[in-house]
């Protein structure tokens, strides 16, 4: 983020680490409140999805930084669409049992 700063760059990644921690703790609480039973592979799927989303966003913006606006936007749009669809599918999968409970 701050390529030529020896101070801001590590600070940036420390803050990023903090944000990820807060995000995962918050996510766990959301899932618990929504009565989603999580296990290790469900967690890995969820985090994998988030990592893929992050990589797509980072990749798109890297290309935009390289002065390739169109390439960057398309890079985000094409895999982005797939990831959104996969996210909706994953969300439905995780929430499936909870909905049934409600229905019953």
């Amino acid at each position: 983020m701050f390529n030529n700063s020896n101070i801001l760059e590590p600070l940036f990644w420390i803050i990023m680490g903090g944000l990820y921690t807060v995000f995962i703790i918050g996510l766990a609480m959301w899932l618990k409140d929504m009565k989603v039973k999580m296990n290790w592979w469900k967690w890995s799927l969820t985090l994998l999805w988030f990592i893929l989303l992050s990589i797509t966003v980072a990749g798109g913006f890297t290309l935009i930084g390289e002065n390739e606006l169109r390439a960057g936007l398309l890079f985000m749009a094409v895999p982005g669409a797939v990831i959104i669809v996969a996210g909706v599918a994953l969300g439905r999968f995780l929430l499936r049992n909870t909905n049934e409970e409600k229905d019953n």
């Binding site: 983020m1 701050f2 990820y20 992050s54 990589i55 966003v57 980072a58 890297t62 930084g65």
Partner: peptide, 15 residues
């Protein structure tokens, strides 16, 4: 964090 990776990505590209 998504905004963060966007920024990190942009600066990696512009560097």
């Amino acid at each position: 964090s998504l905004a963060g990776v966007a920024g990190a990505g942009y600066s990696a590209g512009a560097d």
